[in-house]
């Protein structure tokens, strides 16, 4: 580890650095992983346009297809699907027969908008732990999809607009595909326009959406589903929908206190991160000699892995104070931790 982040000396590059560096290898385009200011970026092909949307069209970025490898210094580097969002990757680094994998953010649940997580084996594993607490166990995705759809139908019966908040990049597109547009028209908040477009350009098929701002004046939204970013909740933007029911879709919704604190009508549990059982299952499948835990409940999850007999330690991140608990404020700020 270096002050700027996770560093590979044999290849002279950083993975998801949080400060500007010469060579940055990026797991995916969420803002806590893809930061501004580095000289060169390397990421999976599907991430390239998302990265440009986020960091500017003038950045120097190279894309690599999943499974293709290149030599960087003395190490062989390749990207493999992580199942988190479009273009999200595990990064595999091979150096003189020693294999390391950095998972980035990942999930094991099905998602029709990006290729599923590919289990690999390695000597060293760096894993995320956003939901690394045993209270997080995701319900069946198809059940959640049914719940959301029946909430929408119930709202239509009452003549109430459905407003669903979810993270702009990844979550919204996944939800869009779960919803389909056979129930009613789907409208989106302006902040979702770019990422949805990027998904379509990458060849992901999504149901038809219109921008709320493009709806004719006095349009009747009572049958509509509105997808929006969590930060729009409580602003004047939603006042245009007179009778409305609001819901949040996020893994944090598993905890009642988080549902209630947001003062929304519903909370649907759906996450793009691995839950507790998946985190453990993945460690078993990769079967590494050492595990480094980062991004989330690093202390707790690594301690549990040690209880299970793994050689595991938390990887210190840039946050100060109580590292794990800093993540707790995530659901109140941006919604989902990216």
């Amino acid at each position: 580890m270096r002050p700027a982040g996770l560093f590979c000396p044999q290849g002279d590059f950083y993975i998801d650095p949080w400060r500007p560096v010469t060579r940055a290898v990026i797991t995916h385009a969420h803002s806590d992983h893809a930061r501004w200011g580095s000289k060169q970026y390397l990421c999976a092909t599907d991430s390239v346009s998302l990265l440009r949307d986020r960091l500017g069209t003038d950045i120097a970025v190279t894309g690599l297809n999943y499974g293709e490898s290149i030599l960087v210094g003395s190490v062989r580097l390749s990207f493999h699907p992580a199942g988190h969002i479009l273009g999200s990757s595990q990064i595999r680094i091979e150096n003189a027969g020693h294999v390391s994998i950095v998972t980035g953010d990942y999930k094991r649940e099905p998602d029709t908008t990006c290729p599923g997580f590919e289990p690999l084996s390695a000597h060293c594993l760096v894993t995320e732990s956003t939901f690394g607490l045993p209270v997080f166990k995701w319900p069946d995705t198809t059940l959640t999809a049914q719940d959301i759809r029946s909430w929408w139908l119930d709202n239509q019966a009452l003549g109430v607009t459905s407003i669903l908040y979810g993270y702009a990049l990844g979550k919204s597109q996944r939800v869009l595909n779960m919803l389909q547009d056979d129930i009613g028209p789907i409208f989106i908040h302006g902040a979702l326009h770019k990422p949805i477009d990027a998904y379509r350009l990458a060849g992901v098929r999504l149901p038809e959406t219109k921008l709320v701002s493009q709806a004719p004046k006095d349009f009747d939204f009572s049958r509509a589903m509105i997808l929006a970013v969590p930060s729009a909740h409580g602003t004047s933007w939603i006042n245009r929908f007179r009778n409305r029911s609001t819901a949040m879709v996020s893994g944090w919704m598993q905890i009642r206190g988080n549902r209630r604190r947001r003062a929304m009508d519903r909370g649907f549990v759906l996450s793009d991160h691995a839950d507790w059982d998946s985190l453990i299952r993945t460690v078993r499948e990769v079967a590494p000699e050492e595990v480094w835990v980062t991004h989330g409940f690093a202390d707790i999850f690594s301690r549990h892995l040690r209880d299970l007999g793994w050689n595991a330690l938390p990887l210190k991140t840039e946050f100060i104070g109580e590292v794990n608990e800093d993540k707790e404020s995530a659901p109140t700020a941006a919604g989902e931790t990216e």
Partner: peptide, 22 residues
Amino acid sequence: SSWLFEESYSWVGDLAETVFLL
């Protein structure tokens, strides 16, 4: 394990809910 239960409880903040989730 008991430490993991306590960590979960301290994060969830409600005993019944912690038991329910675990």
